[in-house]
Amino acid sequence: MDWNFIIQYSGLYKEAAFLTLRIACMGIFGSLILGLICGMIRYYKVPVLSRITGIYIELSRNTPLLIQLFFLYFGLPKIGIILESETCAVAGLVFLGGSYMAEAFRSGMEAVDSVQTESGLSLGLTKKQVWFYILLPQAAAIAIPGIGANVIFLIKETSVFSIVALMDLMHVAKDLIGLYYKTDEALLMLVTAYLVILLPISIIFMFLERRLRFAGSGD
């Protein structure tokens, strides 16, 4: 193991890790919003939109992110839609993550007992108030384990972004292996970088899950 090499190039990994994190954050934020909207459409069974959302969810869940990205990055420019690498990566992540988050939110909302919403309505709350004060808090608490799993899944999926020409962790590792033949060092730093990103997040969600376990009111 060549520690000097590791010290010399750890800066590259730091940069790449921040890039990964930045895109992952934007992608996760976007997919939470898209997922919440799609989840609500599915839950309330909005006439036409529900069908369209259903098709989107099936398409996105049953195809790999890599192919989605290839299509966005190499396919779409042929009909004049040119996306920058980063936009493309975020768009791909939102397209993929939105459907997973939608399912998490929908099943969360469905898990809330209908007594809850009915009680809210009978107390004279409007539908919006019922959703915001009664359904959403309980559904979010129930959905937290699913959302946590999705967040980690999405961060892991960012590892394919090197194909849209982003200098992410995989890209750096591959470059170092190719340029200097320092395979061990490059791979060690790669594994460490992902552990540094993913371990804290998975621990945070583990605690959140425990904290929120009281949330199942009405049981």
């Binding site: 892991k156 590892s159 995989m170 791979l187 552990l195």
Partner: peptide, 19 residues
Amino acid sequence: RIMPQLVLLFLVYFGSAKH
């Protein structure tokens, strides 16, 4: 489970050949 599958692929494909 915490490692992206692509990292695992790199580990086995590049790592084992070198090591």
